[in-house]
Amino acid sequence: MQRLTRLLANNKGFLTFMLCMFMFRSAVADWNVVPTGSMQPTIEVGDRIVVDKAAYDLRVPFTHVSLLHRADPQRGDIVVLDSSAAGERLVKRVIGVPGDQIALLQNHLYVNGKAAEYRFTQVAGIRDDREDPALYAMENTGQLSHAVRWSIAAQGHTRDFGPVTVPPDQYLLLGDNRDNSADSRYFGFFPRNEITGRATRVALSLDPGNHYLPRADRWGAALR
């Protein structure tokens, strides 16, 4: 017991620093490793993303208890959430906010009855394309524009969803990799209080398919 007391006393500064760092990461800002391709091409496998934990709420560290409500997620935000339905932490894009009517018809998005516009684009460097060739397009709803990925192998399959109306205090979230994402089409709407922050940029990126070598062009890249 005396040895433990002495150890704590001798390392008080370091322990205080570590506690403050963990509290900061829990309540203010954090970084997360993205292990799956559900948000490709926006977020690649192996990206380390910066998460603004105070974007929507100031919370009691290590809890979901909100001390101060700052804002609500908006369409197009890339959010991080601790999903009870999925049983894990997810990174997805907000597609529908409370009151929105959302539908997918052959993977084309409709928001409140208005069809999104699509412009095909080229995306290079997605390793999954070697085994699962894909089409890429810029999806524009008038309020936001971002790239989505469609698997060529899934073409011709029924990929319809909804229409559904987003209930109060719930959000409809989808992955940008539309044919390879477990999201609101599988888990339903996600509660507001499970959303813990907004992903803002890539801190650094290591390619797990290439000996974890860095992808220097992605370091510091803003997420849109």
Rank of each mutant, 00 (worst) to 15 (best):
R3V: 10
R6A: 13
L7R: 06
L7Y: 11
N10D: 14
N11W: 07
L15F: 15
L19A: 15
A29K: 07
D30A: 12
V34L: 07
G37I: 08
I43G: 00
L58C: 02
F62M: 05
F62H: 11
T63G: 12
T63L: 12
L68R: 10
R70I: 15
P73E: 03
I78E: 06
I78V: 15
L81P: 09
Q101A: 13
Q101H: 11
H108L: 06
L109F: 07
K114R: 13
A115D: 04
A116S: 13
A116W: 07
E117H: 12
Y118D: 01
Q122A: 12
A124N: 14
A124G: 08
R130G: 03
Y136N: 11
V148F: 03
S151H: 02
I152C: 10
A153D: 12
Q155P: 01
G156N: 08
D160T: 07
D160V: 03
L172G: 04
G175D: 03
N177Q: 00
N177T: 00
S181C: 00
A182N: 09
P191K: 06
T196F: 04
G197S: 09
R201H: 15
R201C: 05
S205V: 12
S205A: 14
N210C: 05
A216I: 15
D217N: 12
G220Q: 06
A222V: 05
